[in-house]
Design a binder for these strands. Structure first.
Ligand SMILES: Nc1ccn([C@H]2C[C@H](O)[C@@H](COP(=O)(O)OP(=O)(O)OP(=O)(O)O)O2)c(=O)n1
Ligand SMILES: [Mg+2]
Length: 444
DNA sequence: CATGGTGTTTAC
DNA sequence: GTAAACAC
């Protein structure tokens, strides 16, 4: 007897938008003569030419990779243009990239609920806009950009170059499409339009994935880059996931993914299907277990959060190797440099968004000089945030000294206290301002 | 000698 | 409140 197939939940249309080689595009907009040339963005350059943090597509072709030293990148790509991240208060200053990301969010947020997921990634819930479009005749609405979408699972065998485009437009307009596929097509038209608006208004290209949940949207945004978009119809999900390495799925790129492979022999998302929800819960806890079981089936209920502003600001710096800080005075000096740039961020947030932060947290990474080969220990401490560079320095210094005493007393088991307290070295410091809230309106 | 500078979420 | 994990 055919059961009425009740949808588990309302059909959603979710997009993930990811800017192409983002910092490089920001620099190419500042210096248009770099457009079309192999380009990478590096931070610092005195030691081995700095390190690449973003690499343009021309440079990727000749083998330049993120985290590659500037010198090594030049060696593999002699024509490479290297642009340095701006420096403020003796540290890398990412403001211009954050601001550029905000420009993009301002455009994208016009189409629906918008979540800023990172400096260059946004999730959009375009369900409502797609529903509105779904009653129209799509044949007149499929733009050139929409018609060049990639559709996962469309026949891979293509006899002619032009058949790809033809096939795609036909897929969009086919009259026997399911409600799901039709809404997906509507979403893709909307996303193609907004990507063109991003290009027109910011000069940045981006790529997008359009699917029925966040996991699949994110997965697909990376499938065709740069300046392209990819759709995931539900009918394509099973085959797509069957052979997909689990590391391609969000949150499975690290330890949990390694454990899955080591403990269950799971290499692909499809491999996960054989395990019951109970078994997965048993091994990885109820939340993670259920999440894994759903993920194996392409099910993901995570909502797009309505949030375009960050929840925290931080300013940090590492002091690797011989540059480690060994006196309280140098630590305080750097706390002041960090406090200066953090306060600038707080000023910006207050004037632009009317928000204030209420919690200050310091993270410090520390080791014992005589055992420099051992992994450094991290610690964090928090206290209420008071505005003003001097207050931030005072408060973060207080937190640092408390951490240091804890650290030294742990390390000094069986040793002379003085021997230890004089031998620490700080390899990293960061200050974070969080608990950011809209400032209460003042009665007038 | 040495990716570094961010940011969010979850577990305890 | 703090640590760990995961990510760009
Ligand atoms: N470990 C990392 C990863 C990324 N970024 C910064 C630089 C990137 O330009 C930006 C976006 O990261 P992506 O992973 O999206 O990489 P790109 O946008 O550079 O390239 P793609 O076109 O592959 O998205 O974030 C960074 O500073 N450190
Ligand atoms: Mg990107």
């Amino acid at each position: 007897m055919p059961l009425a197939r009740r949808p588990a939940s309302r059909i959603r249309v979710i997009a993930h938008v990811d800017l192409d080689c983002f910092y490089v595009q920001v620099e190419q907009r500042r210096q248009p003569q770099l457009r079309g040339k192999p380009t990478a963005v590096i931070q610092y350059n005195s030691w081995k030419g700095g390190a690449c943090i973003a690499v343009g597509y021309e440079a990727r072709k000749c083998g330049v990779k993120r985290s590659m030293r500037g010198d090594a990148a030049k060696a593999v790509c002699p024509d490479l243009n290297l642009v340095q991240v701006p420096v403020l208060h003796e540290k890398a200053d990412l403001s211009i990239y954050r601001d550029a990301g905000s420009e993009v969010v301002a455009v994208l947020s016009r189409v629906g609920k918008c979540e800023r997921a990172s400096i260059d990634e946004v999730y959009l819930d375009v369900t409502e806009a797609a529903e509105r479009l779904s009653s129209k005749d799509l044949s007149t609405l499929v733009s050139e950009e929409a018609s060049t979408s990639h559709i996962v699972g469309l026949p891979q065998v293509r006899w002619l170059e032009s058949s790809a485009k033809l096939g795609t437009k036909e897929w969009f307009c086919r009259p026997d499409a399911s409600r799901e596929d039709h809404l997906l097509a509507c979403g893709a038209i909307i996303i193609a339009d907004i990507r063109l608006a991003v290009l027109a208004e910011t000069e940045f290209t981006c790529s997008a994935g359009v699917a029925h949940n966040k996991m699949l949207a994110k997965l697909s945004s990376g499938m065709h880059k740069p300046a392209q978009q990819t759709l995931v119809p539900s009918s394509a999900v099973e085959s797509l996931l069957a052979t997909l390495p689990i590391s391609k799925i969000g949150k499975l790129g690290g330890k949990l993914g390694q454990e899955l492979e080591g403990e269950l022999g799971v290499k692909t998302v499809g491999d996960l299907l054989q395990f019951s929800e109970l078994k997965l819960q048993d091994m990885y806890g109820p939340n993670t277990g259920t999440w894994l079981w759903n993920t194996a089936r392409g099910i993901n209920g995570d909502e797009v959060q309505d949030r375009t502003l960050p929840k925290s600001h931080s300013s940090g710096k590492t002091f690797p190797g011989p540059r480690a800080l060994k006196t309280l005075e140098t630590v305080v000096y750097w706390l002041k440099e960090l406090a200066e740039t953090l306060q600038l961020r707080l000023d910006e947030d207050l004037s632009q968004n009317n928000r204030t932060a209420h919690l200050l947290t310091i993270h410090a990474s520390c080791h014992i000089v005589s055992r420099a080969t051992e992994a450094p220990k991290f610690s964090s401490k928090s206290r209420p945030l008071r505005y003003g560079v001097d207050k931030i320095v005072e408060d973060s210094r207080y937190l640092f000294e408390r951490s240091l005493h804890e650290f030294c007393s742990h390390q000094s088991a069986g040793k002379e206290q003085s021997e230890i307290t004089s031998s620490w070295a700080v390899t990293g410091l960061s200050l974070t301002a969080s608990n950011i809230m809209a400032k209460p309106m003042v009665k007038t």
